[in-house]
């Protein structure tokens, strides 16, 4: 296969605006494109692309491929795959970056397999080896217990980047770039799956992924009722409540609360962990937090190796005292 040139980002324009993960990809992409001395472009799929295309340029894209089609208005994997396969073959990028979002999780592997190339999955950091122009991808494996550095053996080299691994790219409205429209042919019969219903079970209040303060509870809470204490504290602090998988699996809170490798990735300013042991799979979703506070009765719990502040004690005593004191302070 030919070598390819440039870095192509698969952007998200579904909300009529550029998604936040695309801004993160632009930050990662700028870095590697400049290390390579090659062009940074963004592929946008949808039916209203003018606004996101300009946003991509002001955030550092030199070129935008606008793939406009009514069937791309919402994410449907088969339509998106078909469009991206055509685009990728035409453009011939050296590197493709995808965000490992809910959609990217399905899209990136299928695209890599369709193109017959490898995918560096769920990366925290990407760089290039400038002599060989090889993409070096760092990715957590074994539930975050280890980091693997992997490279792709064929071109395009594809990496899926974990959300929040990069700070979003800075905006500079004086930047200029080119918007090229890329026509695709799609028809309804391509769709192999149909969404027949969507059920939203989201907790009220601030979204877990967006909250600046998160308070999570684990198995050590012993049941669903103690989560009310966490909710109370969250309310006082202007935060939101999360949970470990053990708490979710016990049925105490819905799965949308789960933080971790197979739950949500959060990067709050303050993360308070109550009766959570700090298993690597939980930490995989919260190690980007600025400050971690742990309340756990076991002084040997792993979480005391990861937290900035800790209290060794029973949450039933520690938490009410913390809550009362915080009420007085705020």
């Amino acid at each position: 296969m030919a070598d390819g040139t440039g870095v192509l980002i698969l952007g998200d324009a579904t909300g009529g605006e550029l998604g936040s993960t695309t801004l993160e990809l632009l930050a990662a992409g700028q870095k590697i494109a400049s290390e390579l001395g090659e062009q940074l472009s963004v592929a946008l799929l949808g039916d209203t692309l003018d606004v996101p295309a300009q946003q991509a340029i002001s955030h550092g894209a030199q070129k935008v491929y606008a793939v406009n089609h009514p069937l791309l208005a919402k994410f449907q994997i088969d339509f998106h795959l078909s469009a991206l396969e055509a685009l990728s073959k035409e453009v011939g990028p050296r590197i493709i970056l995808v965000a490992r979002t809910n959609e990217g999780r399905d899209l990136a592997p299928r695209l890599a397999f369709r193109l017959g190339v490898g995918l560096a999955q769920d990366c925290l950091e990407v760089s290039v080896d400038s002599s060989s122009k090889t993409l070096m991808a760092n990715r957590p494996v074994y539930g975050g217990n280890a980091i693997a550095v992997v490279t792709c053996d064929q071109t395009p080299q594809i990496a899926a980047i974990r959300p929040k691994a990069y700070e979003p790219a800075e905006e500079d409205s004086s930047r200029t770039g080119e918007v090229v429209s890329f026509p695709v042919e799609l028809n309804e019969s391509l769709a192999l799956t149909q969404v027949v219903d969507t059920v939203i079970e989201e907790a009220e209040g601030i979204k877990l992924e967006d909250a600046r303060i998160v308070i999570s509870g684990g198995r050590g809470l012993g049941g669903p009722e103690p989560f009310a204490h966490l909710e109370e504290l969250a309310k006082i602090m202007g935060g939101t409540v999360g949970a470990s998988r053990a708490a979710v699996d016990s049925g105490w809170v819905p799965s949308s609360y789960q933080v971790g490798l197979t739950g949500k990735t959060i990067t709050p300013d303050l993360y308070i962990m109550v009766a959570i042991s700090g298993a690597s799979q939980h930490m995989a979703g919260c190690s980007g937090s600025k400050v971690i506070v742990a309340i756990n009765k076991d002084a040997e719990a792993n979480i005391f190796k990861e937290a900035r502040y800790g209290v060794v004690g029973d949450w039933e005593t520690v938490l009410p005292a913390l809550t009362t004191a915080l009420k007085e302070l705020t």
Partner: peptide, 18 residues
């Protein structure tokens, strides 16, 4: 399709204030 170049255990340098 993929080559493993390196595998290591990340070090955590966090000091917890109890």
């Amino acid at each position: 399709r993929i080559t493993l170049r390196d595998l290591f255990v990340p070090v955590s340098d966090q000091d917890c204030e109890i």
